[in-house]
Amino acid sequence: MEYIYAALILHNAGKDVTEEAVTSVLSAAGIAVNDSRVKALIAALDGVDIEDAIAKSAVAAVAAAPAA
């Protein structure tokens, strides 16, 4: 999940989610970065709308709440 969190940090801060940026965030956390996971992440995010995912997380929370 660290890779995802790294993408969200960058996105939240209004930065571009690039290989270099993700790698440097993860490295700063002392994580041994797997290049191909970073590449896969960046490629995947091409087709994924992060904003949309965040919005959905709020909706999901609503749906989940009564069951909690």
Binding site: M1, I4, Y5, A7, L8, S36, A40, L41, A43, A44, L45, G47, V48, I50, D52, A53, I54, K56, S57, A58, A60, A61
Partner: peptide
């Protein structure tokens, strides 16, 4: 075979991560 990306999984993980942070 390692290059085929499941975008749905990434999307779901983003949703999960955002929820966890919340």
């Amino acid at each position: 075979k390692t290059l085929a990306i499941d975008e749905t999984e990434y999307f779901n993980n983003l949703v999960l991560a955002a929820q966890q942070a919340f």
